[in-house]
Structure formats: structure tokens, C-alpha cells
Design a protein around this nucleic acid. Structure first.
Length: 214
DNA sequence: CCATGATCATTA
DNA sequence: TAATGATCATGG
């Protein structure tokens, strides 16, 4: 078992900047969308492989102490901006009630993160160029972190006082509690699957992270 | 079966 | 165009 430190992962990834992730996905045998199905997570899987992590999809810590994330970027005029929000981690209502921000998975993942900017060329994009790789360490007393913590506390408080059904993606300045689940209905029971949520980083936060890191 | 990867679809 | 909510394939 090879140990991939964050530095090594970044170096591995940087070798692939400017390359087309679609071709690499084929190389690694990762389904993209060419089977007629839609694997929305393939970019993330490819990046994990490129970083040297043999780990495929799975639980939270896909690295040792860091988290590998990819973000789709698009051009607004001639400026590169995050196209969408970025999933951080699932929300477990029990844990959310029990843990403060700095005890949460959310913080654990956010504080040592490796970001990959990926070019986005539209729905079912046939190209996905790796634009940039960067990493960032947050400190607990960063102003930004304080504001993020405020969002976390706000969402947490709402969960406690109003229940999970009251949560909405509208809450939060930097992070939000969006729905995120398997979707559809349970094939066994025919019941609607329960609505689950996850923390997402808003585009403004993603942008800020890249500014800080670069 | 469910969390994880992240994008897609719809509406304002 | 931005923002929110919903959705899909994958692997342990």
C-alpha cells in the first residue's frame, strides 16, 4: 500500500494540468456518459486516480488528511468563475445536532482541501480539461472561517429548533444545506426516498478559496 | 442499501 | 443568469 501525502497528490495532479480528463477516464476504465448512461461523478473519480489514490468512491476520507475536490469553472466574459456550488459532505442530522463546527466533518474536510478546477463546456461536455490544482489550509481564526462557522451554526440551530424539513438551500452566506440524495424512488418499496442533504460551498466561497490559494 | 462523486432541470 | 432542488452511476 502506497502512501500518498497531500504534496504527492498535488504533484501527481499537476502533471495532468491542461489534459483532457475524458481521455484519461477512458484509460482508467471509468464510465463517463458514453454508455448512454450518465455518470455525474466521473470527473471526481478520475481525479482521485490521478492523484495516486487507488481508492474509488467511498466514504469521507479519500485521502489521508486531505480531501480532493473538483469544481466546474466557466467563463463569464473573460473571467473564470465557478459554475456551480461544490459538495462538501453529507449532513447527518444527528451529528449536526451533536457536533460544533470544529468537530464536524464539514470542517475536517474543508480545512485541508485539494481543489481541482475543471473546465466545463456544457451539458454532457465531451471535454473536461484540468485547469488548475491548488491546495489550501484554513486556520481556525481566519475571518472567512468565522463566517462559515456562522453559517454552520445558523443551519444547525434551524435543524434543532425547526427540524430537518425546515432546512433550505437559501440559508447560509458561504455554505448551504442543499438536498442531495440518490433520487427517484426506492425500487423495492416504491416509496419516495427520504430527502437527504449535504453541505455545499457556494460559488462565492469557491472563488474566494482560489483567490486565497493563488 | 446508502453515502459519495458532482451535474442537470426548473423556475424566478 | 443565478439559485434551489432533484437526480444518477458507482462501489463497499
Amino acid at each position: 500500500m502506497k502512501i500518498i501525502t497531500r504534496t504527492i497528490a498535488i504533484n501527481n495532479l499537476k502533471k495532468h494540468i491542461g489534459q483532457d480528463l475524458r481521455k484519461l477516464a477512458l484509460q482508467y476504465g471509468i464510465t463517463t456518459y458514453e454508455t448512454g448512461k450518465q455518470n455525474k461523478g466521473w470527473k471526481g473519480l478520475v481525479l482521485e486516480r490521478l492523484a495516486g489514490l487507488e481508492n474509488n468512491v467511498s466514504k469521507a476520507p479519500n485521502g489521508l488528511t486531505y480531501e480532493l475536490k473538483s469544481v466546474a469553472f466557466r467563463y463569464a466574459g473573460d473571467e473564470l468563475v465557478p459554475k456551480e456550488t461544490m459538495a462538501i459532505t453529507m449532513i447527518n442530522s444527528e451529528e449536526l445536532k451533536a457536533h460544533s463546527f470544529f468537530e464536524s466533518h464539514c470542517w475536517a474536510k474543508l480545512k485541508t482541501v485539494v481543489f481541482c478546477a475543471v473546465e466545463w463546456n456544457g451539458t454532457n461536455s465531451e471535454e473536461a480539461k484540468l485547469l488548475q490544482v491548488t491546495s489550501l489550509d484554513f486556520a481556525e481564526d481566519d475571518e472567512l472561517i468565522k463566517e462559515i462557522k456562522a453559517d454552520y451554526d445558523f443551519i444547525r440551530n434551524r435543524l434543532i429548533t425547526e427540524g430537518g424539513g425546515a432546512l433550505t438551500g437559501k440559508d447560509g452566506k458561504w455554505i448551504q444545506a442543499r438536498t442531495k440524495g440518490t433520487g427517484g424512488v426506492n425500487p423495492r418499496t416504491g416509496e419516495r426516498r427520504p430527502i437527504t442533504r449535504a453541505f455545499y460551498a457556494r460559488t462565492g466561497l469557491v472563488k474566494k478559496i482560489f483567490e486565497i490559494a493563488s
